[in-house]
Design a protein around this nucleic acid. Structure first.
Lengths: 199, 199, 199, 199
DNA sequence: AATGAATGAGAGTTCATTCAT
DNA sequence: TATGAATGAACTCTCATTCAT
């Protein structure tokens, strides 16, 4: 249990991360300036440094925030014992919904993480790799079960799913009127038909 | 036939565009600096302005360079009378090969064009729209011929093809060891299976 | 009553305006550089931008500072009910004394205001026009009273007074040893004899 | 007698001086750029250096051009044996007509000569001083003849004449619709009445 | 916990000037 | 005689960052 003031700090820091996410998503890391971030929070530029030690650290936090619970989702999906189709649908749904909810942060993770210092990027990459690996495993299992065509390269397949989701995620973030449900349906439909074993 | 000096100017300007493409692709528009571009060409920073009136203009030229002949390719593909499968294969091949050849510029068009001033962006958007529209038409025709499932939304399908190609294009640019031929094969395979009408 | 910090800001901004006035007066707007202005204030170049958003804005503030209370003076003179001679003497005195006191700024207003953006120049021009108009009115009244020869064109007369004062003002600013009192005397003497109705 | 080519050189150099005068008058020495001057002549920027060794030299030439024959005029006026009034009228007429004819150059001499290097400025100053001195002499003579009031300070009087002419010269250059003849009339009228000995 | 003020490094851009052709 | 191309220095302006208060 934290003291009231520690609690406030945590709350404000979250607000700072969200503000940074929004600004980085709109202008990119280098195009954004700390003043914009501060103003979006309602504080002054200098005060930002109470929550971040540098702009770069802010980027790191945004990226982490951007993938973490989206990776947790995948942990759940992967460890379940649903059918291949159900797992793929769940993956796409989770991925695209993330864009709607914590939208900007995930976009920032995709587009700007390469500006992070080596060290920090490594930590994040592990999360990303775990995600992709679990997706590959799902494909591998499905191949063994004969649900997916034997010719499919699981590594390619996983990248393709992620790529497709990110491409649509971009459109979703940019256009708030897009029908999320329909996009999910179309994507899963395409992917399942594309990979599965038809007789 | 131009004079020798006009020719030299044109050649150097092309070199400038290529250099800018490479630098923008690596660091993003805002993260890049004109000094880097100039140095990559072997000239001094100030001399760049003999070829561009501003960094922004350089971005515009790179973007144009990035899509123009790739759009021309699509014109050819769309106007031909090949089968749906052949056209889709040709599209993917052309799109992904573009990334290998004029690699960085197309990536820059995708990721950085939004930093262009309104006016310039509009001109480029028309090119992009034409591309997508022609792709949509291919899907429409295929639906009429019964080669593609009736449930497919042509607009979604076109976006999906583009999104997938761009996602892989990114990977291709970043990793020069990727087997372009295999990627093309896997992508077309996925897409054709995903959209076509199986009995 | 402002807070202590707002007060400090105001004070520093005034100092910045004075410094800019001095530098612009010496080197002209385009010949001056912001580094000189900052150094004269004892701050660093970049810090100037805490007080001005651009060099141009600095010029605008200097020009405003240069005429404003000098115009107010004329308001007082014009609305009084002194004789023509007294009013003319007061005008010349006020005008030339301004050069000694806030010296550089008035010179800057005269010589450099044309480099201001349209909009800003318009606002200042109104002040200047008011000044000239009041002077014209003084001449008109004097003509009605028969103190000034009927052939005199009031518009010409006002311009002549202003022109003569500015010409001497320039000399006064450049040569600090000039006897201000004598200059005033000579000028009023010339003007009164030049315009008045002698029998 | 010069060769045809030397003649052309001389002609082009004159054109360069006039072009520089126009540009300096409009934008000031520091605000002007050599490209503008060259373009106004119809040649390219680099070619200017065939006629001037530096921008500063161009300024020097413009200034010289601006006062030289205007000083010669004064030589003629001063050495004649006309009345004071005639000489004053001639002076004002010559001075103001200069602004209409070789207009910009004289303005440049007045406003920009202080940006010339010490050495060059000295040479020009002598010309200016000669002009003023001759004007002073005219006043001195007139005082002896009793045409001008005894209280008048000849030095002040000369400066006043010059100052007034320059002030109107500025207006004349800026506003081409101004009636030159009327301005001359009004100015001489004011000055003669202002200085002369009325009974 | 927050801010006002300042800083210094670096960016884009301009421009006088040079020089081979 | 003129030009295209390049240069390098200077300039305005931006911005992440610091720190006393």
């Amino acid at each position: 249990m934290q003291s009231a003031s520690a609690e406030k700090y945590t709350r404000q820091r979250q607000a700072a991360i969200r503000a940074a996410a929004a600004v980085f998503a709109e202008k990119g890391f280098h195009g954004a300036c700390t003043k914009d971030i501060a103003e979006r929070m309602g504080i002054k530029q200098g005060s930002l440094y109470y929550y971040f030690s540098s702009k770069e650290e802010a980027l790191g936090e945004v990226c982490l925030f951007g993938i973490q619970d989206y990776v947790e989702h995948m942990d759940n999906i992967a460890s379940g014992d649903q059918s291949f189709e159900a797992k793929l649908t769940a993956t796409v749904t989770s991925h695209l919904s993330s864009y709607r909810e914590r939208n900007e942060a995930l976009k920032v993770y995709n587009d700007e993480r390469l500006y992070l210092p080596e060290e920090r990027r490594t930590g994040l990459k592990e999360l990303g790799s775990r995600y992709r690996q679990q997706l590959e495993d799902i494909f591998e299992d499905a191949k063994k079960d004969g649900v997916v065509r034997n010719g499919i390269d699981s590594h390619f397949a996983a990248q393709a799913v992620i790529g497709m989701c990110n491409a649509w995620g971009d459109l979703i973030v940019r256009d708030p009127d897009l029908d999320l449900f329909k996009v999910i349906q179309n994507c899963t439909d395409l992917l399942i038909n594309g990979f599965s074993n038809k007789k």
